[in-house]
């Protein structure tokens, strides 16, 4: 696999086993990369270490093994180059929405004057359509508005990479949809490189270019990389009308419901950690795959074909 903009190489996280003297491996031997401008989602069940992976990418957590390289630089700690949107909005409740963004802007652009910082922050408040609520405290904002401020804060520092940790999971379905549209629009405008954790299959299908599937933890591994076969220009309104929608969705759900467990059960013996299978679920291919749970010969055929092409 060619080294991407973000390159994750042999990453592992182990904790001392709380019960015995051994170690508990959350995930190990993780290899993947993200290209510049790409939107990659990672899906897996709780306990597979998704959040830990994101925290290692952010520099907030240390891996036990392996390395993360972003734009040619080894990640050793947090950086303004990698903005994080936290699951809970993580806004400072004693500052206004604008104040929260200004804190970020003033950290990134140390030379700017107060007026410049304010103007820069205001432009990002406008980007997420919150101009009228800019001077409210987070407690006075709805959940969706708070997360918008979180997005504006992350974007305002103009990061190389945006890391999102289940950013919309605490929101109701309608608000979540509106925010997903917001992210799509911002993405279309800025071409931001984004790495996102989600447990929502539809969210991943709507937003991501590629979807990383993790087996169940402990000892979670990267099972497959799904290429999104839906057209790049998507909207929530007609996503489900595309021919590839159900093959893709079925494949993802099938993985989450049964295969993530089965693959974890056999210890990931069939998996090639350095070259995880790349699958492109589309109308013809996936139709044959249905009805055959355990071995997925059809998928395997697709994988083989892709591998062959890659070599």
């Amino acid at each position: 696999m060619a080294a991407g903009f973000i390159s994750v190489e042999g990453l592992a996280k182990r904790f001392p086993d709380p019960g015995g003297r051994g170690e508990l491996t959350v995930f190990e031997d993780l290899w993947f990369s993200v290209a510049q401008g790409e939107f990659v989602c990672i899906i897996g069940h709780s306990g597979c270490g998704k959040s830990t992976i994101l925290n290692v990418l952010a520099g907030l957590d240390q891996a036990s093994d392996g390395a993360v390289i972003v734009n040619g630089k080894h990640v050793t700690g947090p950086s303004l180059d990698r903005a994080v949107i936290f699951q809970g909005h993580a806004l400072m409740p004693w500052m206004t929405a604008l104040g929260n963004i200004e804190l970020a802007v003033s950290s990134r652009f140390r030379g700017k004057t107060k007026a410049e910082i304010r103007a820069h922050a205001e432009s990002y408040v406008e980007l997420v359509h919150l101009t009228e609520s800019a001077h409210k405290k987070p407690a006075q904002l709805s959940g969706g508005m708070r997360q918008r401020v979180g997005i504006a804060r992350a974007l305002s520092i103009e990061p190389q990479v945006l890391l999102m940790d289940e950013p919309f999971s605490a929101l109701d379905a309608l608000t979540r949809g509106a925010l997903q549209d917001e992210v799509l629009a911002i993405r279309a405008r800025t071409d931001q490189t984004i790495f996102m954790i989600t447990h929502d299959v539809d969210e991943a299908m709507l937003l991501a270019d590629r979807i990383l599937l993790m087996t169940n933890g402990p000892r979670a591994r990267l099972a497959e990389i799904i290429e999104n076969t839906l057209p790049r220009e998507r909207s929530r309104a007609d996503l489900h009308k595309h021919a590839n929608y159900y093959p893709l969705r079925n494949h993802l759900i099938d993985f989450l419901v049964t295969r993530s467990r089965q693959l974890a059960g056999d210890g990931g013996a069939h998996l090639d950690p350095r070259h995880p299978a790349v699958v492109r679920p589309a109308l013809g291919a996936a139709a044959a795959a249905t009805g055959d749970g355990a071995d997925h010969p059809a998928d395997a055929a697709v994988v083989a074909a892709i591998r062959a092409r890659a070599r």
Binding site: G59, G77, L80, V84, F86, G88, A90, A104, S107
Partner: peptide
């Protein structure tokens, strides 16, 4: 969370 924000902002 707030401390993590401070860290990612390199305060």
């Amino acid at each position: 969370d707030w401390l993590n924000v401070a860290k990612t902002l390199e305060l």
